[in-house]
Design a protein around this nucleic acid. Structure first.
Length: 634
DNA sequence: ATCAAGTCGA
């Protein structure tokens, strides 16, 4: 046989003789199988198919590498996606969009923005509309406004300037960066608005606290789905409109929207925490169980926090110990909850269990722990924890954590050490940190240091009314009348801007709200008489009204009358009149409990032999037998 | 191949 004949035979019959086949015919089957991997979130199958593709030598044969890249991204395997991406000899726009999406999905937006410029420097490609959208998404999650604006500028000059999807991501980027009005102008320029565009804008308004704009947009939207309801409700809750958030959730239920995803529930549970509404919180818990999300980790975390914030530590513990898995948030919620309710031992015990369970604590955990030590006077333990945090867990403490530690040192009387720390710590001290130190100076009677710190505080732009009260007391105690009148003047200016106080009392089935100075209530006379009786009895036991908490300038007797009308007293009196014997009285106040009411409530708890729990704007007070769980620092 | 919703702190 001549060589040419042999070659032609080989060409036509090689498949038969040598087992060769045209491998490119396998591509459609690979693609199909890979798409199934994405659909069923089966990364291990994808890896097997990947191996087969490499064996067959088709691994550089598009669209296989791009599809593989996509599958790894969608299955949340950014490292595998990255390896593949780097090995690719020919990368196109699809490869780039896929790798950037993989990083976004894996919550690595930093990676997205740090590699995208290689798209033009190495691969000589210009971004297309897909790449613009992924980039803007990364900017949105990083709140990277400067970069976002640069991408916007480039997009406007690109051939894709009319792309509505990119515009939706621009809306989201500006909304997340806190610029809802710019987001709105982009939103208005979208020709065909989808539910994504509407939700992005809605969420922007709601999170920025623009309640009316959010509601208007929500009502105007052509359709509503679980996304838009969740965006509205969570946005309202995040910007402090918890009552509106709960109300809209009730509306959502009324419309019969199927809760096919538990995200919205975590927001509603969060709203219950903020409002400390135990009854509604319990109902929401019931709904969580009813919709089958009881075992969902982040919902359980939210429930633990909710019960702790509603002062129902038993219920919090119940949810916590029934959880099948617990992450750092679960443990931290319990630790912080115990700490805030003055249960230092329990908080420290939980920490030991947490370490044993192999869960790594974070900064929030240590805030809870140091806070617990601070309130129980456990200086040595607190110092140990602070050290362990830095050395064992490599956490560099934030200003808040330093403030917490400063509080621990100074409360326990280590004033000089605390002052050294505030001067040498790697942060500029703020109002809370100086105030913590000053409060301890006053408590331990160090007026020399107190005055030094007071003068520093006076130079700051103070936000907390309690800081003014503290300053005024320190100056008064030292006879510095000039400074004191200056503080009083600042306080009077501030009083105008203060929001009105109210307290609500939770009696299980009903709850009542009392506003400061409220005079018309059906049970006004009974409440008034009870308060007068309690006033007389507490005075017998040594209570003297401390009128330094009254910010108005008026006569002493007027001031005492003013204290008498504080809303928490009325809520407690009402609770005492109506509560079933043997139950605790739960009060929620929107402002901080003033020092005078604090002293009054301590004595009241021993007179009526009842536990009174008050949650104020900053902490929890369990009044029992004449004592308070906050240890009288607040 | 791209864009929308959630949970822990002084």
């Amino acid at each position: 046989m001549s060589p040419s004949n042999f070659l032609s035979l080989l060409d036509s019959q090689s498949k038969l003789y040598l087992g060769f086949q045209d491998l490119s015919t396998l591509i459609p089957s690979y693609l199909h199988r890979l798409k199934l991997c994405t659909k069923h979130q089966a990364p291990s199958n994808a890896k097997k198919i990947h191996a087969q593709i490499v064996k067959s030598g088709l691994n550089q044969c598009q669209p296989l590498p791009n599809t593989l890249l996509n599958v790894y991204g969608k299955c949340n395997l950014p490292q595998d996606a990255q390896c593949l991406f780097e090995e690719m000899t020919q990368r196109d726009h699809v490869s780039w969009a896929s790798i950037l999406t993989a990083y976004n999905l894996a919550k690595l937006p930093n990676k997205t923005v740090s590699i995208f410029h290689y798209m033009f420097t190495i691969d000589r490609l210009q971004p297309d509309h897909f790449v613009y959208a992924t980039l803007l998404k990364a900017c949105a999650s990083l709140c990277a406004l400067r970069l976002g604006k640069q991408v916007h500028a480039r997009f406007v000059l690109s051939p894709f300037v009319d792309d509505d999807v990119v515009k939706s991501s621009l809306v989201d980027m500006y909304a997340k960066c806190g610029l809802p009005s710019i987001a709105r102008s982009v939103f208005d320029s979208i020709l065909v608005k989808t539910s994504v565009s509407w939700t992005a804008m809605l969420s922007g308004y709601a999170r920025s606290g623009l309640k009316d704009e959010a509601m208007e947009l929500f009502l105007r939207a052509p359709a509503r789905n679980l996304y838009s309801w969740t965006a509205l409700i969570s946005g309202l809750v995040q910007s402090g409109y918890c009552i509106d958030g709960c109300y809209m959730f009730i509306e959502m239920r009324r419309e019969g929207v199927d809760i096919s995803d538990p995200l919205v529930l975590s927001s509603v549970v969060g709203a219950c925490s903020n409002l400390a509404v135990l009854g509604f919180g319990r109902q929401t818990h019931g709904l969580v169980i009813g919709s089958g999300y009881e075992s969902c980790l982040f919902i359980s975390n939210a429930l633990v926090d909710m019960y702790a914030k509603c002062s129902d530590i038993l219920a919090a513990r119940n949810v916590f110990y029934r959880m099948l898995q617990r992450d750092v948030v679960s443990w931290t919620s319990m630790i912080v909850g115990a700490a805030q309710h003055g249960r230092a031992e329990e908080a420290l015990d939980l920490y030991d269990q947490m370490v044993l369970a192999g869960v790594k604590p974070n900064e929030v955990t240590f805030i809870g722990l140091i806070y617990a030590c601070s309130h129980a006077g456990l200086v040595i333990k607190g110092r140990k924890l602070f050290k362990a945090m830095i050395e064992d867990y490599r956490i560099s403490p934030s200003l808040q954590l330093f403030t917490c530690f400063l509080d621990l040192l100074s409360r326990s009387g280590h004033l000089n050490e605390a002052e050294d720390l505030i001067k040498t710590m790697p942060h500029e001290p703020d109002e809370p940190s100086w105030a913590a130190l000053l409060s301890s100076c006053k408590h331990h009677g160090n007026s020399e240091m107190g005055l030094r710190i007071a003068d520093r505080l006076l130079n700051l732009n103070l936000l907390e009314p309690s800081t003014y009260v503290l300053l005024s007391n320190v100056y008064a105690g030292a006879g510095k009348w000039e400074q004191m009148s200056r503080v009083r003047k600042l306080m009077a200016d501030m009083e105008v801007k203060r929001k009105p106080g109210y307290s609500s009392v939770d009696l299980g089935k009903e709850s009542q709200v009392f506003h400061a100075g409220e005079t018309c209530h059906p049970m006004k006379d009974e409440i008034f008489n009870l308060l007068k009786e309690l006033d007389a009895e507490t005075r017998k036991r040594g209570y003297v009204p401390d009128t330094s908490y009254v910010l108005h300038d008026m006569e002493e007797q007027e001031k005492e009358r003013e204290l008498f009308w504080h809303s928490e007293r009325w809520a407690v009196a009402y609770g005492l009149l109506k509560a079933v014997p043997g139950t605790v009285i739960r009060i929620v106040k929107n402002l901080r409990v003033c020092g005078d009411c604090h002293a009054f409530l301590k004595l009241t708890s021993s007179i009526v032999h009842k536990e009174i729990i008050v949650r104020d704007a900053t902490r929890y007070h369990h009044f029992k037998d004449g004592r308070c769980s906050c240890n009288d620092f607040w």
